[in-house]
């Protein structure tokens, strides 16, 4: 078996009395989509935040290609190749899609302290950004302000921003939320095409999408991984059916 790209080792996090992450260890391997499912408030977003660096775990370590991340800032982790999308999309509304995505390209090239060359005519910046945008099927919207985009398009821009980092791993927090069946189907297809290039840790409530996309599934309940396995195993796990799939499985 190949080495995991991303590995969590014994992560633990409490907010006061609330134990939001309990001894979570899981990994993400090359070429796979690893889905993380669980009921509302299970601690999925909290887990992503700890991987990305916006929250500090109380205990445990995160490794990206064997490199420990705990002492690194959000920006440093991003430059190392952690791409992230937010549950509630977080973009610069007045700026065009292109400019939102270009900042990431700028970061990987390690050069935000350039004061002279206009970005508009900087092909080194524009072209990789456009490629990321086109990968998400948004080429025709590159010059549109984010504030003029539909909800679904914003989700795609978020993924494009993450792709601009040439990520080694993608962390996607409910990318299908609020998309409607058509949008979900489209994004599912895009993600399916993506996973051969970059492994994805996918949080998703849309179980159709999860069962179609995921190579492995981990189930998080009250901050704890209660089940883990491939789609088939999870579908038939009685514990999971009771704790989470209960209402959907019937």
């Amino acid at each position: 078996m190949r080495d995991p790209i991303l590995a969590l080792d014994g992560l633990d996090k409490s907010f006061g009395a609330l134990h939001a992450t309990r001894q979570v260890s899981l990994d993400l391997r090359p070429g796979e989509i690893h889905a993380l499912i669980g009921p509302n408030g299970a601690g999925k977003s909290t887990l992503i935040a700890q991987i990305a660096g916006t929250l500090k775990p109380d205990r445990g370590e995160i490794y990206l290609e064997r490199q420990a991340l705990s002492s690194l800032s959000v920006a440093e982790r991003a430059r190392l190749g952690l791409g992230r999308s937010f549950q509630v999309s977080s973009l610069a509304e007045p700026l065009s899609v292109l400019r939102n995505v270009m900042v990431g390209v700028q970061a990987v090239q390690g050069s935000s302290y350039r004061f002279w060359k206009p970005i508009r005519s900087d092909a080194d910046l524009v072209e990789p950004a456009l490629r990321a945008i086109e990968q998400m099927g948004l080429g025709h919207r590159a010059d549109t302000a984010v504030s003029d985009l539909s909800h679904g398009e914003r989700r795609q821009v978020e993924v494009a921003c993450a792709l601009a980092l040439k990520p080694k791993a993608l962390l996607l927090d409910e990318p299908m939320a609020g998309l409607g069946p058509e949008g979900s189907a489209k994004l599912t297809e895009l993600l399916e095409g993506l996973k051969t290039r970059v492994p994805i840790l996918l949080i998703e409530h849309d179980m159709d999408a999860v069962f179609r996309l995921a190579d492995r599934i981990s189930v998080l309940v009250d901050g704890e991984v209660v089940a883990h396995g491939d789609s088939e195993a999870i579908r038939n796990n009685p514990h999971v059916r009771e704790a989470y799939l209960g209402e959907e499985a019937c």
Binding site: A52, T54, S73, V74, A75, E76, A78, R79, R84, F86, S90, L91, A92, E93, P94, L95, N100, V103, G104, Q106, A107, V108, S112, C161, A164, L165
Partner: peptide
């Protein structure tokens, strides 16, 4: 500009 409009986005994009 990104630091002003959305600091989280800037950091997530890899710029301190």
């Amino acid at each position: 500009t990104m630091a002003r409009l959305n600091e989280t986005r800037l950091a997530t994009a890899g710029v301190e």
